[in-house]
Every structure is written in structure tokens, then in C-alpha cells.
Amino acid sequence: MYDPIILAQIFWTGLASASPHVLMTVGFALTLKVTGLWNFAQAGFMAVAFYTMYMALNWLGLPIAVAVLLAIGTTVAASLATEAYGLQVLRERQSGNLTFFIFTLILSEFLIYVITLIFGTEPQTLFKSILSPVQIIGGVAVSDWDMLGVGLMIGGMFALWLFMTFTRDGQFLTAVADNAKLAELYGISARRSYRVTAVIASLFIVASMYLIGSHGGIVPNTPLELVLSAVLGTLLGGIGRVFAAGAASIFLALIQSFSILFLASRWQNLLLYGFLFVAILLFPRGVRLPKFRFALLAGR
């Protein structure tokens, strides 16, 4: 079982399968970083993204490019509407974390209920076939889907990094993430940054759901389960560290893939959650030290 080709296959397929999860984790982690919110409404947006593409492709017969654009449109719209009419209201009311959590979760469930009503509960895929052409490279099976996934994952993260480092809006995101009130004093609009974040997260969501939906069947409830993997990656990567969250996602996926070598598949999930449990406890970043501000007087 330790044949290098098999190991390479496990690595490659694990990496490729992780790509949609990494994309949705990056979206989730970015939202958390900038807005400070654990946005479980993302599950609802993921459902919106998938079913928009599904409807465009299968009910309206539109070409794939148009379907993707439409999905970006609807997901962004849902995101911005939630931001403006839900989250901002709660923010103004200075609601506690638990309220935000329950609100976003119930909103997701509600969106999913509506989608269930329209689309039913049968598993659906974007395209009729869930197979994609495969080539054998060095003994390892590499499918077109694999390459698209890995490409979107790396390309997406790189593009985000460029955006956050070199564009003004991107830099503003970091400023707002750090201290929204301070950023406002410098003329940076926190709300605009929240909207930019919503748009970027939507792009990642659409990419992620495209990958998942072309690879296997989705039912309206699937996004609720998927979003939990985003939470895991974000936690392990560290709150506020978007790319670390992506890396953590890859790491988790590879652990799960390789664990098949020595662990019965039925215990994989337990391994994952146990790992998470211990990791959070060993790094209790919840303990905050009171900040010590020491005014440095020049020359003294």
C-alpha cells in the first residue's frame, strides 16, 4: 500500500477533492476576518449559487458561461441583501455573537427551505454526466475536473492575495479587519469593505459549487454540511488568517485522504473532530491579555 504511485494518487486526488472546500473556506475566512462574523448564511448562498447554475443549465438551456455569471449575480445579490437588511440591523442593535450565529444559521435554513420547495429534494448535478476526461500522467490518474479544481484553488488564492496586497480596496479590507472604527476615522468606509468582502466571498462560493456540482449529486441540504468543513479550516488556520485557513483545509483533506492507509474509513470523521477538539484546546487564543500601551517618548 505504500507504493509511491499510490501515494502520489492519494495526494493528487486528495488535493483536487479538497479544492472546492478550500475555496469555500477562503470565502468564509475572509468574511470572518473583515466583518468579525461567523457567517453561516454562507450555506444558504452556496445553495443559491448551485441552484442558479442548475436552473440556468438545465431549465433554461443557457451556456455554461452565462450560467456562471448568473450565479455570481444571484449570490452577490443574496449576500448584499443579507448584509444590508439583516446583519447591519443586528450590528446597529449591538446584538451578541449568539444572535448573529442563530440568525445566519436560520437564514441559511430558510433559504434552503425555499429552494427545496422550488427544486425538490432529488440529488441533482450540474451536468448529466459526473465523469470528466482522464489522463494518466506518470501512473497517476489526472482528470480534467482535478485540474480545474486545483487551478481554481491556486488561481483564486493568488488573485485574492494580489487584490489584498496591491489594490486600495484590498488594503482597506485589512484595515477594516484590524480596527473598523479606526479605519473610518481615516475615511475608509467599513460598509463598503463589507460589501467588497461579500462580492469576493460570492465568487469563491460560485467556483466552489461549480466544482462540487459537476462532480457529484447535491441536495438542498448539502451546503449546510459543507459549510462545517469551512468552519473547521478557518478555526485551525486561525481567525483572521485567510490563507492559513486555506492551507489548513488542504491539510485536513490530506490527513483524511491518507488516513485510509492505516485507519478504517469509518473512524475518519472521529479523527477529524478529535483533532479539532484538541487543537483548539492546546491553542487557547481565547485568553486575552490586557493590552499594555506604552507611550514611547522620543529621545527619553
Binding site: V231, L235, I239, L281, R285, G286
Partner: peptide, 9 residues
């Protein structure tokens, strides 16, 4: 020993 979101998770 963990607080807030960490306790939740």
C-alpha cells in the same frame, strides 16, 4: 479555558 467562538467550536 477557551472563550467566545473557540468555546463554541
Amino acid at each position: 479555558r477557551a472563550k467566545g467562538p473557540y468555546l463554541a467550536m
